[in-house]
Design a protein around this nucleic acid. Structure first.
Lengths: 160, 160
DNA sequence: TGCGGGGTTGATATGTTATATCAGTACATC
DNA sequence: GATGTACTGATATAACATATCAACCCCGCA
């Protein structure tokens, strides 16, 4: 069944498979352990294809029959976010599978406040006005959170 | 005693007074109630001049002799952030007094990961790469969180 | 085969941040 | 004095996150 990615419809089944395969390849290449738990959490994020709280993921792990406790979810999410297979959305205290697995990137997010869908895009925080301000202040930017909230095209007609 | 603002030393006593006065003026102009609790919380933020958690603020309110409960801090912080007298730092789950009170603005923050100091600057999230990506996706940006993490000039020499 | 080390998992407990709810109070207006 | 609105007090609970330590497993090595 198609779902929304970047607010567009796409072939979701293949995008799950590709996301998992990309992570698998990247882990093999970097000598990382893509364990069943980590794989399962990434699969959950890819399947739902939206920002999910750690405890929501935990509930799904429990439906799998695992008596999972919070650290189980947070450990897997730490791994996935550290290695760029998933991202944390600070604004939502939630996590989402990466849309550009493998590529080194500085993600930015577009969060629809009507339907809570999230699209990942690319930002260049060190460029533009922020970068100039940081330079002027003598501040070295190492990473940046960029999360825009607004209205997605699907909600624009219906919700104004 | 001078403290750091935007990583620079300044006359802190007058900046507290000016911050409170600016809030007072703005509230009068807009018909908002700048109650003692709200004033006290803003004063705490201005005095410490750094990002503070709600419970840290709560502890200080209790030192004042008030048997304050969490909603007390959150209500005051809601008021202050809604009307632009303070900002929430998502990355830190913390709050900081606004450095540009009164002016309508889209703030961005430079957060030092060594000393946790925070400088407020201005961003133009709807411009630049993010804005173009949003346009291309048909997404309307209404507000944006921009929080850069890195090394401030004071920590650059000492902490690398 | 036995040993030791690194990384992962299991399990318990706790810490931290945030909100829901409802009763009470203050003040302005009619 | 009745009414409405906004703010405050108080209790409880929800939601998010981490500390800690023991157990396990795989691997390399003697």
């Amino acid at each position: 069944m198609p779902a929304s990615l970047g607010f567009h419809t796409h072939d979701h089944r293949s995008c799950i498979a590709e996301g998992l395969a990309a992570a698998e390849r990247a882990c093999r290449a970097q000598g990382l352990q893509f364990t069943p738990q980590r794989r399962r959490v990434l699969e959950i994020l890819l399947q739902r294809h939206r920002a999910m709280g750690a405890y929501e993921i935990l509930d799904i792990l429990r439906e799998d029959g695992i008596a999972a406790q919070p650290p189980v979810a947070y450990r897997a999410l730490d791994f996935l976010t550290t290695h760029g297979f998933a991202h944390r959305i600070e604004r939502l205290n939630a996590f989402i599978a990466c849309s550009h697995p493998g590529a080194a990137h500085s993600p930015a997010f577009l969060i629809c406040r009507h339907c809570d869908s999230v699209a990942e895009t690319l930002a260049d925080p060190a460029r533009g006005r922020l970068g100039r301000a940081a330079d002027a202040a003598g501040f070295t930017i190492e990473c940046a959170v960029v999360e825009a909230e607004g209205t997605c095209p699907n909600c624009r007609g219906s919700a104004g």
